[in-house]
Write a protein that binds this DNA or RNA. Structure first.
Lengths: 233, 233
DNA sequence: ACAAAAGTGTTTCCGTTACACCCATGA
DNA sequence: TCATGGGTGTAACGGAAACACTTTTGT
């Protein structure tokens, strides 16, 4: 079927949905576009492959490091899918491969090596505001993927620093899902999953109540049994 | 960061994991490659975008129709993801977007309009045999996706003709999952999900036992509650 | 009458929910 | 002592597993 015809080639980009829990809200890392099209609009961080031979996973990790200053190898980074509608970029045809990244609340504001000013924005605050290109759709897909991942995997720990309490973990669930959970049942559920949480022996000392035990992320990646939305009040 | 440099472009292809249940086995549509590289090896059907402006979803639907002769608009077709390791094709860099398609057992053998001979192959029979390129990996991802979809969605009906019995549906589950299910519990489960199965009033007349009621696929797309693997014996 | 497959009823078990209750700290 | 949040115990509920049992056909 294909002798003597020219195979079309397309510019390939990667875009990142970088999520964190920060100031009691689910926030996404966005950049403000400095050039047309969509000048001044918010967009997902991303960019074209840096060379003809760069791997897409590598490109996503590179962009993540550039924007957050963190070591991508230690972060959760998974592919969301390819978005390739021909007119998604008015200048030329671009196929973008979107990735979902989960990072803990960063000590320093996300000032990357890149000159562009990446900023955290609460997902809920975006409301009906449209992002550049089809990034609103990609963001919605990423958020939904993250929400589902919390049900069936141990991904929630990726939002937390290395040491955290059960209450910290519960707040991640509550903020990402946008619903409140019963602290007592949640506690028993997560402690009941083998290798989900590893006690460190340490305890918090701050707040008003009883000190909470500190945990590290365990080796488990899937949740048995799952922690489902719409229950637990 | 990017003034005065050339954006690299890449050849983009779509590849299809077309699954069906046929002769009591989960089968995948494969083609035998007639040219190098991987000449003589089995590969997933697929191909490059037909033009600079063809949408990837459209390209996947086109390939599906070419290979099966069926109207892709009536079939289940979903994106699996992008596979873009630079050396996956030794000739040149190709990024492929893989799709999962589910089709009912076709009356006629899958002789497409395309000259290539697509053939159904039982997934289990492939064993350790490697497909061309990274297609073994893509196939594994597609099969795993289909298995999970049966747990949480009504996708199983996509394997069935328009009219089918509960036993037909159960055989789909058993064959795709590779485990046996209790016919009585399965029956009550699927009948209990609202809008999953619509009775047609008709009954089968053939087999040795009591005639079974015939159903059409209902409007439900998600399963409440889910039908999980590793139970039901 | 018997075999075979469809379909229903019932008991047992297990995870979840809801909530009473106890624990450990700061003020 | 009280407020606050951490953590445990437990009874009620609901879905799933196991399986006895009835229904409806062909032979």
């Amino acid at each position: 079927m294909n002798e003597g015809w020219q195979i079309p080639t397309i510019a390939v980009a990667v875009d990142l949905v970088v999520l964190t829990v920060r100031s009691e809200a689910l926030q996404v890392l966005l950049v403000e576009r400095g050039i047309e099209p969509y000048r001044g609009r918010l967009a997902l961080p991303g960019g074209f492959l840096s060379s003809e031979q760069e791997d897409i996973d590598t490109a996503a990790a590179r962009e993540l490091t550039e924007e957050t200053g963190l070591d991508a190898a230690r972060l959760h980074l998974e592919q969301l899918g390819a978005y390739g509608v021909p007119d998604r970029d008015p200048r030329r045809r671009v196929l973008t491969v979107a990735y979902l990244a989960i990072v803990p609340d960063l000590p320093e504001p996300a000032a990357g090596g890149d000159a562009r000013s990446a900023q955290w924005t609460p997902v809920a605050k975006l409301g009906r505001r449209r992002l550049a290109f089809d990034h609103s759709r990609i963001l919605a897909d990423g958020v939904e993927r993250a929400r589902r991942r919390l049900e069936y995997t141990t991904l929630a720990t990726a939002f937390c620093p290395t040491h955290f309490t059960v209450a910290d973990l519960r707040r991640v669930y509550e903020i990402v899902w946008g619903e409140t959970l019963d602290p007592r049942n949640f506690h028993r559920k997560v402690r009941g999953v083998a290798d989900f949480l590893v006690p460190t022996g340490e305890h918090t000392t701050k707040h008003g109540g009883r000190p909470a035990a500190l945990f590290r992320r365990g080796s488990a990646e899937v949740l048995h049994p799952a922690i489902l939305r719409g229950g637990g009040n």
